[in-house]
């Protein structure tokens, strides 16, 4: 295959390319999925902000 005869090598390339395709397909299919809408998560973020206020002023 493309000048490489050893399956030990071309399977390595094949798995690399399949892994790459899997990453691309997954990324495209889920491009807009998983956005955080959980109100509690946003609440938690605000809590963090207020806790972090304590450590401000040191930069």
């Amino acid at each position: 295959m493309l000048g490489i005869n050893d399956p030990g090598i071309y399977l390595g390339y094949l798995f690399s390319i399949l892994g790459l395709i899997a990453c691309i397909v997954y990324g495209i299919l889920n491009w807009n999925k998983g956005r955080e809408t959980d109100i509690e998560e946003i609440q938690k973020d605000l809590e963090w902000e207020s806790k972090d206020e304590l450590t401000k002023g040191e930069i």
Binding site: N30, W31, K33, G34, R35
Partner: peptide
């Protein structure tokens, strides 16, 4: 959010 991780899979790969 997980949306950012989903997108990062494509770029990172």
């Amino acid at each position: 959010s997980n949306r950012e991780l989903n997108r990062a899979v494509l770029i990172g790969g």
